[in-house]
């Protein structure tokens, strides 16, 4: 976790003031692969030797409208399982921002689909054309993977290698190729912008 040794603004941060842990929220419309994206980050983090807690929205909440998957990554055992204000917020849809944007703290880094951000006050969000890029990769449904690629490319929260391995293990065989293309595209977008 080279760049983002951020501490969580509120609860967890103060509770674990001496620890290094990162809270990631991935949110989007139901069907955008938010759960899968969360599982991929979590799985990759485990391969990198980190401790992980993953939670997600359930029930009607997860089927209609917006859905979220929260992942905490840490070098040490994770006590409190909720992320509070996320350090990283990957947002794929307009509705998801409305539903889950309220947890954002000043130090939350928001990465948002460029189209979905239209008409929203998203502050200093990093806008990324996730859906458009996924469409160019031949799988509009892989916007989540473009976003993940960008997030990892920009922050190194998990290693690219572990993420690829997690994707290879979890993606359906028939969609693996387009997913890998989407991942590469996301990483490339990050490389362009990397500070």
């Amino acid at each position: 976790m080279a760049e983002l040794n951020t501490r969580n603004g509120q609860v967890v941060g103060s509770a674990l003031a001496t620890r290094v842990q990162t809270g990631i929220r991935i949110a989007g419309r139901g069907g955008q692969g938010v759960m899968l994206a969360g599982l991929l980050v979590a799985q990759a983090a485990i391969d990198d030797g980190l401790e992980v807690v993953q939670t997600q929205s359930y029930g009607p909440e997860a089927r209609l409208g917006a859905a979220k998957s929260d992942v905490i990554l840490s070098h040490e055992p994770i006590a409190y399982p909720e992320i509070g204000a996320p350090d990283l917020f990957l947002c794929l849809s307009h509705d998801a921002f409305t539903a889950y944007g309220h947890d954002i703290a000043p130090n939350t880094r928001l990465i948002m689909d460029a189209r979905a951000a239209r008409g929203l006050d998203v502050g200093e969000a990093v806008l990324v054309p996730m859906v458009d890029t996924a469409r160019d990769c031949g799988a509009i449904i892989a916007a989540n993977i473009v976003g993940l690629g960008f997030l990892v490319g920009m922050t190194d929260v998990v290693s690219e290698r572990s993420l690829r391995r997690a994707l290879a293990a979890r993606a359906r065989p028939e969609s693996l190729e387009s997913n890998m293309r989407a991942l590469d595209a996301g990483l490339a977008l990050a490389a362009e912008r990397r500070l």
Partner: peptide, 10 residues
């Protein structure tokens, strides 16, 4: 409880 039931850990 509902949180533990649904959360994932390594």
């Amino acid at each position: 409880d509902a949180t533990l039931a649904h959360m994932r850990e390594n």
